[in-house]
Design a protein around this nucleic acid. Structure first.
Lengths: 164, 164
DNA sequence: TTAATTTAAATCGTGCACAATTTAATCGTG
DNA sequence: CACGATTAAATTGTGCACGATTTAAATTAA
């Protein structure tokens, strides 16, 4: 009897505890589906989706530090270090310690890494058409998602003093 | 044409190729941030986020097959098989082959698995308050994201005839 | 100027995601 | 019945994500 549970004392919360009521699941499943959409396009470039994000940052800001990628992409060193090493092995970038501060690692595009931008230029339009959304639809959703992410991020940052 | 880039032949696509213009990155980073928000709440229950999703399905539909989880969660066997085995090892469910069709695996909650629903009942409200969004905001976003995911999904399904 | 602290990055271990392959049960046709 | 085809699930291998720990360089304070 999944329907009508009148005056069931344990029910008021249960209602909210279904898969299709979860915003988080919509977000999660949409994100995975989007990554799948990118996969064949990016594999033509020899990139995975997170690698593509790193390349996007580098095409905008070459010579950035790993901590810069961390800030920009909201990923941590445990994710970025091996990822960047794989891109280095592919010859798209080089990693070099900063001479001023040997703790820092500077990431620089190689000529191949820079050239790849031309090949990547058509990815956004191909994705937009495949996603069946108008650009303005995508843009509106993007704005809302960034706002959500930023709120979550500041909440997460303000709540990491549990270790004190 | 927000920037006016006059007659630069290689430029028309470049503009779109920046991180902050990518809806996909907003989606991806928001999804990761949301998972981080859930993490401490779910670890009180001994669950990871994908495990929580499986439990949500089971609380709605106990005795479902692994293929049912696959359909419902848009995940494949390579993800689900080990995940469900971990939940079994925790004693939250049991896996048993269907007597009618030995290929199928039926997943059933144990009493512990069913009891966990009470403890999980407060998760949605705690997440909503931590995310700093009104319920209607979240619900609107949820609807848009589901629509996007469904469009992506049908697109992906209609394009897997590449192997033919 | 050492000693304590902080910081940037790397390392390690666990758990997803998913493509590709494999295994085993069922079905369909002759 | 047989036997090729289909199907459900498992397995394998690669690449994220991320918490926790470690390493080593730089900063600060004593």
């Amino acid at each position: 009897m999944p329907e009508h549970q009148p005056f069931n004392q344990s029910a008021p919360g249960d209602d909210l505890l279904t898969l299709d009521r979860q915003m988080c699941f919509a977000l999660y499943s949409a994100s995975l589906a989007m990554t799948k959409l990118y996969k064949p396009l990016l594999s033509e470039l020899g990139l995975t989706y997170p690698q593509y994000l790193v390349m996007l940052v580098l095409w905008e800001t070459d010579g950035i530090r790993v901590s810069g990628l961390k800030e920009r992409l909201f990923l941590d060193y445990g994710t970025l270090t091996p990822l960047v090493k794989r891109l280095e092995k592919q010859g798209l970038l080089v990693r070099q310690r900063s001479p001023e501060d040997e703790r820092q690692v500077i990431v620089r595009l190689t000529p191949q890494g820079r050239n790849l931008q031309q090949a990547a230029a058509r990815v956004p339009e191909r994705v937009a058409s495949a996603s069946g959304c108008s650009l303005s639809e995508l843009d509106g959703l993007k704005t809302e998602l960034c706002a959500l992410r930023n709120r979550l991020h500041s909440h997460l940052e303000s709540h990491l003093e549990e270790s004190a």
